[in-house]
Write a protein that binds this DNA or RNA. Structure first.
Lengths: 247, 247
DNA sequence: ACCTGAACACCGTTCAAGT
DNA sequence: ACCTGAACACCGTTCAAGT
């Protein structure tokens, strides 16, 4: 029997949902990248393949290679595109206005909003191989690194103080946001089974009495307040860096 | 210091090319997992396939499925195995001896040693989907979470203080170690091309004058001292948590 | 100018069959 | 009891060919 067609149909339905647009604009890099971001947001990173991404755009996979050198490059573009979203966030300043503390507060919250808007894509921001030592995740965009360093410089930070602040700021954001986002069910694909965790947990926890006793506390979500408090702490440390270097 | 070497010396010389060992022991889960760890250490995560891992062990890929349910499960086992290495680190205590500060200091340094021993595998520890909200990376092992919480409890921490300390400790470690390890060239596979970064950087940096001016400072590696200082800061914060909760 | 068919060299995974 | 051959449904990527 000729039953080879069910595969194609099923895929197209699940993944695309939309039929190819009736009028096909020529396809360009930006459209591909933003389709990739939406795909990851919806189906998770493991589900993203060149072939499926092509299908979403109403095109064969091979067409993408005219605009994107390959999958790795596409993922780098996804990372940069996500961070660049902050450009349209009016609460984030490109240059300090009410002091560096306000400037860094806004930047930190902007990155956090981006992370929470793309929980399935954010681990990518964190773990892609770095192109240069000055592009520390999650601030993986020269534009924002420049804004950070220039901003602090203009506020009177010495070179060393600005760089130290940059290091402390990025590792603070990375740790907090990666954990916050991963608790939202980060990396998993769409096809994951719901296992019988009820039984499994109760059983496997008995050798770990303290974890068991504290499991209620551990399950509570305090990420928002913890973020604010840790950010406050960080700004205090940064203030010390500044005064040390000017002393 | 105690990282590789002690695992298996019997056979399985590094990668393929070797004929199957003349006497073939039956293959077991632990041998597979530790071969996977060594493979990632050497060739990077992207290079690891079931087929290649089989080849390393002198066996076809299909044989692995008798001992490991699949690739995902294998990666989880890799993560746990890496963290479990701390059990053989004599500088890490399972229970506080000279106070909780010493206890946490030793634990933090233990995790850092593990991360630096496996720079290519550590991003996996950071970004695998969490199995439970209480298993926060990078402490992805119930044994160590139990040790942490029980240790602080026994030192007089309230439940809430112990859990808060756990949260702060993990996000501190995650941020610092992921960045430290990624600056060692984390995620990349073995086949990567050496691009012409000399030209590329000098050219593309001109729109970013502050980055360019500070590129010298940015390239300096202060990760060790920064780790120590931030850890000290963290312990101060934890001390506050403790005293607040007992007040 | 833009897209595709067909092909290549890989994947993970299953299962009946070999020893 | 342990391993494998063959097969299936996928991958990323190239390139000559179609429109």
């Amino acid at each position: 029997m000729a039953n080879d067609e069910d595969v194609v149909d099923a895929d197209a339905d699940v993944v695309a949902g939309q039929p190819p647009p009736s009028v096909r604009q020529p396809l360009d890099r930006e459209r591909i990248v933003s389709a990739a971001v939406r795909f990851i947001d919806e189906y998770g990173l493991p589900g993203l393949s060149m072939r499926r991404l092509g299908a979403v755009l109403g095109v064969e996979a091979m067409s993408l290679y005219r605009y994107v050198p390959g999958r790795e490059n596409l993922l780098d573009a996804v990372v940069e595109s996500i961070i660049e979203e902050m450009r349209h966030d009016d609460d984030v300043l490109e240059v300090p206005r009410d002091g560096w503390q306000d400037f860094l507060q806004r930047l930190a919250h902007g990155v956090r909003r981006v992370a929470l808007a793309h929980p399935k894509a954010f681990p990518l921001v964190a773990s892609r191989p770095p192109e240069a030592p000055w592009l520390r995740p999650p601030l993986r965009s020269l534009k924002w690194v420049e804004a950070f360093l220039d901003g602090l410089s203009s506020e009177g930070f010495s070179d060393n103080a600005a760089v130290s602040a940059y290091r402390a700021f990025t590792s603070f954001l990375l740790g907090h946001l990666l954990l916050e986002v991963s608790s939202l069910g980060a990396d998993v694909g769409p096809l994951d089974v719901i296992d019988d965790q009820e039984d499994a947990n109760d059983k496997s926890l008995s050798p770990y009495p303290t974890v068991q006793r504290l499991s209620g506390n551990l399950a509570e979500d305090h990420s928002a307040v913890e973020f604010e408090e840790s950010l406050e702490e960080l700004l205090n440390r940064v203030a010390l860096m500044q005064s040390e270097s000017s002393a």
